[in-house]
Design a protein around this nucleic acid. Sequence first.
DNA 1: GCCCGCATGTAACTGGTTACATGATTGT
DNA 2: ACAATCATGTAACCAGTTACATGCGGGC
Lengths: 191, 191
Amino acid sequence: MRSSQTETAVLGGLSVEPMTGYALREAIREVLGHFWSESFGQIYPSLAELERKGHVRRLGSARTGASTFAITPAGMTRLKELLAQPLQQVPPRNGLMLRLFFGRHLGPEACRSLVRQARAEAESRLSQYEAIYQDVMNEDDRTGDRPYWLLTISAGQHAARAAVAWADEALAALDQLDQPAPAASESRRKI
Amino acid sequence: MRSSQTETAVLGGLSVEPMTGYALREAIREVLGHFWSESFGQIYPSLAELERKGHVRRLGSARTGASTFAITPAGMTRLKELLAQPLQQVPPRNGLMLRLFFGRHLGPEACRSLVRQARAEAESRLSQYEAIYQDVMNEDDRTGDRPYWLLTISAGQHAARAAVAWADEALAALDQLDQPAPAASESRRKI
DNA sequence: GCCCGCATGTAACTGGTTACATGATTGT
DNA sequence: ACAATCATGTAACCAGTTACATGCGGGC
């Protein structure tokens, strides 16, 4: 059985509007991209199985090949069921933290470089969220989904702002490592 | 070839002190647990291959079975090499966000429940970080590693605090969905 | 006529977890 | 003696990505 997580994403996507498998993947990349991803290798088999189970149906096989999928009432029921399932948490694997944890073997400068990179990525995410926020506010249909979508954008923003704040603190701490703490008195040494 | 990520974690762990495979896993769970995980199915094959390549060596096979591994100079070189490698970012898969994004089909109350759960987990992480922080400060050997370990703890704290702040905001927003916004004038309606 | 973007699908591989089989050591 | 914990290892399975094979339609 294909992962229920992919099933959720596919059914969820089609609950917004009917699409082809290709468009579904684009939509997931562009809209859910900051917290979800799916590849063709997942989407197509998943769509095939969902069709077999009657949770989606194929519309307009007009030109051979391309076909648009729509969610069925049974699919909506299934989606609600899937959304209500308890979230299985994935074992964490944060490459940046792994490197910093053993940062002693890397040295302060290499660590600073890693942290700077992380900071830049967080800043970039912040501006992306700003753009997505505007997009969501400008879509006048789909107002029923809007508050929920804003929730996820807000989560991204909080996380990114935290990353930036942490990075600044970390950079300061790493600087301290190069110039070890001066003694309490006689804090400034003449050359 | 076993993942270089597991290799990094194993070599890194042994760079702190020699251990058995079992102890290595415990150490990873307890110390790196909040941002890294490894299972026996990864650790043992990885140790075997590292031994074959001369990056770790087996100490004291005193009693049959249990053997302690130590990192070799070649292993230290390899570790530094691995730590310097660019970080490959993993495609995001955040189950909570996926559910909230399609929260319209779940309804405000179920979403609040999810957010409350996330908030509680973040709070719990915060108190764990506090405990780990104390542990790290109390270890008087390993002072060379300390500043780096503190960096990762701090990252966890920033992230957890952000999660709590977001959750509070999200709960307020979800409450608004139940009692839709009153009109600008005549803000309070008599029964 | 040809390239690019849309579109579908499959096969191979990879990174990883889980479950199982096995046995030594220690404490009660 | 027996249970709990330490310890090692393997086999089966799983989710997911990547790469590949294929073809249609439209614009230059």
